[in-house]
């Protein structure tokens, strides 16, 4: 089992969600986050006062998937979230030791 964290542009969320459910992903958790990478922030001007906004809004998607789904999920994420412009985001992949479904007590792959 793997945990996939993807940080994407907020307006791409719907496309990404549809692409993932299409290939069999059954659940996901999203969080509104702020941060910067190479894209850096932007400036806003209010009545002549210029402010640099360092942290720009992104959506973080958390998924736990079984190993065989991983390549498909990554491919779907890349395809759906890409605009080709700076700031498209990143995908992080890490191993997951255990998953437990609270309602039934199921463990491992069955609990995903």
């Amino acid at each position: 089992m793997k945990k996939i964290e993807a940080i994407v542009k907020p307006f791409k969320l719907d496309e990404v969600k549809n692409a993932l459910t299409k290939i069999g992903v059954q659940g996901m958790t999203i969080t509104e986050v702020k941060g910067f990478g190479r894209q850096k922030g932007h400036t806003e001007v209010y009545r002549g006062a210029e402010y640099t906004i360092d942290f720009i809004p992104k959506i973080k998607i958390d998924l736990i998937v079984s190993d065989e789904l991983v390549p498909g999920v990554i491919e779907a994420l890349e395809r759906a979230a890409r605009t080709g412009k700076i700031g498209d985001g990143k995908i992080f992949l890490s191993p997951v030791e255990e998953v437990i479904r609270i309602r039934t007590g199921e463990r491992g792959k069955d609990a995903i």
Partner: peptide, 11 residues
């Protein structure tokens, strides 16, 4: 204001 000109104070 404290921080005027140094920190952002956007509406």
């Amino acid at each position: 204001r404290k921080g005027y000109g140094e920190e952002p104070m956007p509406p």
